[in-house]
Structure formats: structure tokens, C-alpha cells
Amino acid sequence: MFDNYIGLCTRHPLQCLPVFITILPIIILLKRKAYISKPYLILLIFLIFKLAIDLIMFHLAAHRTNNLLFYNISIPVSYTLLAGMFIYKLDSPIFKKLVALSIVLFALFSIWDMMRVNPDMNDSHNHSMVPYASTIQCILMILWILLYFYEIMVSMKIPNLFNSTFFWICCGFLLYYSSFVFIAPVLHYTEKWTNPLSIGFAANISYIFEIFYLLAISVGLFNFEKQHYAKY
């Protein structure tokens, strides 16, 4: 039974590594009790959800079954959770409303996108990745991160950015979504269960930065101090 998993790990180590690294920020988050702050509670839910989806996809891939359905489902959920953190972290009420509105619209859009690409949901074998939703998710996330950066520059509420948990999280996500924004739409055409098309090293970039953002989140959470959680 484990031969399949070990075989997958040896064949695709870079793709499998982020699945297990996800455990690291979860442990640090629980250890530092960062969940007392609402944004980090949402982050905990996101990380647990990501771990669950990744493990299901890992299991299906190990048994050579099309797992793209789970990837497509994970897009609106992960965006809802990640953008939800910004509702708490952004100061401007207008930005907060924009983020909240984007969550609703994006959820509807990504469901439409998934249904449009895969009209027959029962045909999981030929299920393919959404062409637009992941790209739009990248753009929206980059936008919220830049807005957050703008707010911290204007308000000067964080004296030392290296000690700010959320700054580390934003840096990780900014680099991840920046690396993924151009690759995401291409994956719709290349990542097919039958006759996949290789795009070479470009396909690995997002996995490298997925590992990076998980490590950045871990570093940020390691800096989390319970008594200061309301500040940053």
C-alpha cells in the first residue's frame, strides 16, 4: 500500500514536499497559540483545509486517479479563507467591504468557471483545471497584499517589519502568487490526465514558492507574541 506513496514521492519530490511542509506552520501556529487572533484562526483553518485537500490529492495521485476536481474545489475555499484574513487586517472600511464583496463574487465565478470547463462533473477522469479562477485568485490576492502594504506604510503602525507575523505571511503569499499568476492559466491546457503537455521548469516554480510561502508563514508565526497580537 505504501509503495504507491513512496513511488509518488520519489518520482515527484518537489510536488510532494509542500504537502508535508504544511504541517510545520500548523504546529507552530498551535504551539504559539496564534489562533487567539481571528486572522490567524482563519489561517489555521486554511492550513488544515490545505493539508486535507493535499493529502486527498496525494492519495489519488498515488493511485493514479484524476485529482483535479479537488484542486478546483480548493480554489474558492482557499480564497475565501485567505481574503477573510485581510478583512481583519486591513484598516480601511472601504477596502474591507471590497474584500468581502470579492469573496462572494469570486466564489460564484469560480463555481461557474469549474462548471463551464467540466460540464460533466461525474466524468472525473477527464476533469481539467479551471482556466481563469486561479489566475483571478492570484491577481486579487496580490492586490489585497499590496493594499495591506500601502496601509502599513501610511499608518506606520509596525515599528519592525521583521517581527510582524502578518508581514511575513504577506511576503510569502506575494511571492507565491507572483510566481503562479502567469503559470495558472497555462496549466488548464497542459495538466490533462491524458496527453499532458510539459512546460518544463516553469511547472516547478509554483511548487518551489509554495514551499517558500509555507516557510515564510512558519517564520512569521514563530515571531507571534500572544501579548502583542492585537497590535500587528
Binding site: L146, L161, F182, I205
Partner: peptide, 26 residues
């Protein structure tokens, strides 16, 4: 592939620039 790599690299450089700018500005 080349265009994709180039675009991704450009995007990453921009992201690095933004992070560095925020830190230096602050």
C-alpha cells in the same frame, strides 16, 4: 516555455522589489 519563465521571473522580481521597497521605506 521561455515566455512563461520570463514573465514569471519578471513578476517575482517585481514582488521582491515591492517587499524591499516597503521595508526600506518603513
Amino acid at each position: 516555455k521561455f515566455a512563461l519563465l520570463l514573465a514569471t521571473l519578471a513578476m517575482l522580481i517585481m514582488a521582491f522589489f515591492v517587499i524591499t521597497f516597503v521595508m526600506l521605506y518603513q
